[in-house]
């Protein structure tokens, strides 16, 4: 009886998960497939999954006519800079909170959640005014600055969980040997949590790469646009070229998905595993 019920429950679970997996992965597979279809097939056979005459036509147009490579470089510059600055500031802050202000840990968590509360659209208005005022409108530097507003609170939050796992004893030993606080942090604590920090860095990079609203508001020339807004500008064309949009979408999403799958085990559970409690 018990065996039979378990078997039934497992079968239902497998069927359910298979359906969900199909729904979850279909859009990715479909845009990849569409990006290789010929223009005729794109509209003519909307149900065929494998392109009959695979073509690189759209990729060629996106990179060589629309100069999407410039936007890709912009995005890499912005995302890397935002990630580097965020990680340095957040690692210091998370370590500082855990080691020197342990009592405020819970309060800090709530404060960080509160910063998450601020609607991006609420920040967008003052940012558009302030960034213009300091002459950074339509520049990648301005964009990097605004990205810190969402990446740092989140990174601090995740890293507090990591630094809690560093035993005080090993730091104490180094202190006895005369190392100062910054050296203890850099030489002892940081290496212990390094794998976690790499994961947070990758996650920060993905979020910066995917960001849309601030770029929409702050950047107005095609040559300065990061990929998200450059891709959006394709949707405003008078005659929509779905093929180009598909090829550009694939170029934008592949780094995201690949990086995300690499770090999924570190980040995905981390939200609730300890960083919050």
């Amino acid at each position: 009886m018990g065996m039979k019920r378990r078997w039934l429950g497992n079968s239902v679970s497998y069927i359910y998960l298979t359906i969900l997996a199909a729904v979850a992965t279909f859009p990715l597979l479909w845009i990849i497939s569409s990006s290789f279809k010929s223009p005729g097939e794109m509209v003519g056979s909307p149900l065929s999954f494998f392109p009959k005459e695979p073509t690189l036509l759209y990729y060629d147009r996106v990179l060589n006519v629309l100069n999407f490579d410039v936007n890709i470089v912009n995005s890499i510059i912005v995302a890397l800079s935002a990630t580097f600055i965020s990680i340095v500031i957040s690692a210091l802050a998370a370590y500082g909170i855990v080691r020197f202000f342990p009592r405020v840990g819970k309060v800090m968590t709530r404060v960080l959640i509160t910063t998450y509360l601020f609607p991006p659209i609420l920040l967008a208005i003052p940012y558009s005014i302030l960034i213009t005022k300091v002459q950074l409108a339509n520049s990648l530097v301005g964009l990097v600055i605004t990205y810190l507003s969402f990446s740092i609170p989140y990174a601090v939050w995740l890293m507090i969980g990591f630094f809690r796992t560093v035993p005080l004893e090993i730091e104490e030993a180094a202190r006895v040997d005369g190392a100062n606080k910054l050296m203890v942090f850099y030489r002892i604590a940081l290496p212990v949590v390094a794998p976690g920090i790499v994961a947070v860095a990758v996650y920060t990079f993905i979020n910066a790469w995917n960001e849309f609203l601030f770029s929409l508001i702050l950047i107005n020339s095609t040559g300065k646009m990061p990929v998200s807004v450059a891709l959006y500008s394709l949707t405003g064309a008078e005659i929509l070229d779905w093929g180009e949009m598909m090829a550009a979408s694939v170029l934008v999403i592949l780094p995201s998905v690949i990086f995300f799958l690499i770090i999924q085990n570190k980040i995905a559970g981390g939200l609730t595993q300890g960083s919050v409690k």
Binding site: L17, L20, A21, A24, T25, F26, P27, L28, W30, I31, S34, I206, W209, N210, F212, V227, S228, V229, L231, Y232, T235, W242, M245, M246, S249, V252, I253, S256, V257, F259, F260, L261, Q264, A268
Partner: peptide, 22 residues
């Protein structure tokens, strides 16, 4: 788990374009 997690990695603009296409 890996397959089911994929939508999470989608940039919002790509979510919009791919679903509008589908």
């Amino acid at each position: 788990r890996t397959l089911l997690i994929i939508p999470w990695a989608f940039p919002v603009i790509v979510i919009a374009i791919s679903w509008k296409w589908i």
